[in-house]
């Protein structure tokens, strides 16, 4: 049995089934969609077991990794059990503690990491001179500084957008629209290339299995 050919056919048939969604919802798309949901859910359960829970929790707890058991791993084990307590209505409230741990850790991590990369690094990059950089440099730096400052004014919530604030906010949203348009245009080509990839699979991998060579 040629498993490679079977694999190509499976991929091609499921691809065409999903593409049929572009026309309208139909039994082929429904079949492929439901299969995708079920299989991918199963894949991620297995992935979590073998790539996260086993090496980071079970091997550490039992010492299967480096030989010495880490008994502190009982703590995440208990919190994991608390999370699964949701399945039993009488003790479902225990899951709040596991949730609190996830949310608290996430909130603390997000606060510092976001402040570092999305705030301070951006401020540092915006502190640039408007002199000694040539005419184009002056224009570029001025646009960046004015764009950032006016963009921040646009996001002011506690002041109405009137008068000077309104004018600055107007400049801000204009720069934002140009930025979003540029971002949109930048990714269009990348999206088209994804379609090219799938088309190549169908035309140059699948069709040859039926003796059709383009």
């Amino acid at each position: 049995m040629n498993w490679e050919i079977i694999g190509i056919w499976l991929g091609a048939v499921l691809t065409l089934m999903l593409y049929s969604f572009l026309y309208r919802d139909n039994p082929f798309y429904k079949f492929a969609e439901h299969l995708f949901v079920g299989m991918s859910a199963g894949y991620w359960v297995i992935y979590n077991i073998f790539n996260v829970l086993k090496p980071n929790f079970w091997d550490e707890l039992t010492g299967a990794g480096d030989g010495s058991p880490d008994y502190f791993m009982i703590i995440p084990g208990i919190f994991g059990m608390f999370m699964l307590a949701r399945l039993v209505p009488k003790i479902a409230g225990l899951s709040r503690m596991a949730l609190a741990m996830i949310v608290g850790t996430g909130a603390g991590l997000s606060l510092v990491s976001t402040l570092q990369t999305n705030c301070l690094s951006q401020i540092e990059g915006t502190i640039m001179p408007l002199s000694g950089v040539g005419t184009m440099g002056f224009i570029d730096n001025l646009i960046v500084v004015v764009g950032v400052v006016c963009g921040l004014v646009y996001f002011f919530f506690s002041k109405p957008h009137e008068g000077l604030t309104g004018k600055a906010a107007g400049v801000g949203i204009t720069i934002l629209m140009v930025a979003f348009g540029a971002s949109f245009g930048y990714t269009v080509m990348a999206r088209i290339s994804l379609l090219i990839g799938q088309a190549q699979f169908l035309l140059f991998d699948w069709l040859p299995t039926m003796g059709i060579h383009l």
């Binding site: 960046v144 930025a179 930048y186």
Partner: peptide
């Protein structure tokens, strides 16, 4: 991409970062 796009993206990122904080 280098100038107005960067300005707009920075404004959104800084504002969002304060929202996260």
């Amino acid at each position: 991409m280098q100038v107005p796009n960067m300005a707009g993206q920075r404004a959104v990122m800084i504002g969002a970062a304060l929202g996260v904080v």
